[in-house]
């Protein structure tokens, strides 16, 4: 069976993508799955710091340059069953990502002998990010409760929808749709309205893949919640998405704010390893189970026969 791929993205930097993806990977590894954590943050790779490792010479850049295989790039970590591929560390050597490279990466990843692969994407809805995001099995979007990151999340949703639309139409029709979207935004809206119906009536495009998107919805995770209101924000975002875009998303869970997180990063020790019995590790466990409900999770020590 090929690996199940989780892509973790966000509309904006600093909301905790790397923390969420590394903690999710550790949680899955703790559940006795073999996990690969890929750092695909081309602007600021720091998964290795989150895992408390020294940066290595080899990075995903070698794969993008076509110099090395993913198998050779993956390196073991201090956590059993968890491997990682380091992100671009020497940024002066970095070459911009070409179109299609994201897709190629996902295809290569599928060949690897892991149960789960967690890809930590860079911030924003860049073309490569969206490419990986759409071909992943689970698309996880991280936000926190601040208006800035919520706004950027909506921009991410828009980019995501347009990307889905562009894949299914001719360039001409796409231009028409883009115009329709801009008009839709400028228009004064009254009451309940549907993005989908609007596009249908104005640009004359019918959207069956909205329903396809529903079968693999974007998973929203609200990070660093400080109150119940923050936790409920996910439901609000979900409601706004379905009212505004007519797009169903899934609110997968929230992760509380914990002062110990930055403390453990400063100590260069993964939070879930340094503090395994906190509320946060419970929340990550719930998240992992929510994202892979059919897997056979083993909690505790597995007997080796």
């Amino acid at each position: 069976m090929s690996a199940k791929i989780f892509a973790v993205g966000a509309g904006k930097g600093g909301v905790g993508k790397t923390f969420i993806s590394s903690s999710l990977a550790i949680t899955l590894a703790k559940l006795h799955h073999s996990v690969l954590l890929v750092d695909f943050d081309l602007a600021g790779a720091n998964v290795h710091t989150n895992l408390g490792m020294e940066p290595q010479k080899t990075s995903i850049q070698s794969f993008l340059n076509g110099e090395a295989d993913l198998v050779n790039l993956s390196q073991p970590t201090s956590i059993p069953k968890l491997s990682m591929i380091q992100g671009v560390w020497q940024e002066w050597e970095q070459t911009p990502c070409r179109r299609g490279q994201g897709l190629q990466l996902v295809q290569e990843i599928r060949k690897l002998p892991f149960d789960f692969v967690v890809i930590d994407l860079g911030p924003g809805a860049t073309a490569t990010n969206l490419e990986i995001f759409s071909s992943a099995d689970e698309k996880i979007l991280v936000t926190n409760a601040e208006p800035t990151s919520v706004e950027k999340s909506y921009r991410f949703f828009e980019a995501w929808i347009l990307k889905q639309v562009s894949e299914n139409t001719t360039p001409d029709a796409y231009e028409k749709i883009k115009k329709a979207v801009q008009e839709f935004r400028a228009q004064k809206q009254q009451g309940l309205f549907s993005f989908r119906k609007y596009l249908n009536s104005t640009a004359n495009v019918s959207f069956d893949h909205f329903d396809q998107m529903l079968s693999h919805p974007i998973r929203l995770v609200v990070n660093s919640c400080r109150s119940h209101q923050d936790q409920d924000l996910g439901y609000s975002v979900k409601s706004v998405c379905s009212k505004y875009f007519d797009l169903g998303i899934d609110y997968s869970g929230c992760v509380d704010y914990d002062n110990a997180v930055w403390h453990s990063i400063r100590n260069k020790e993964p939070f879930l390893i340094a503090k395994p019995f906190t509320k946060l590790s419970g929340q990550f466990l719930a998240l992992a189970k929510h994202l892979s409900p059919s897997e056979n999770h083993v909690i505790g020590i597995k007997a080796v026969i």
Binding site: E146, V150, Y235, S236, V237, S239, V240, K243, Y244
Partner: peptide
Amino acid sequence: ERSKLTYSGENPAIYTMF
């Protein structure tokens, strides 16, 4: 209750959308 919370007051979730 959730909808009421979303569309009343200054909920960050409706920022730039409604």
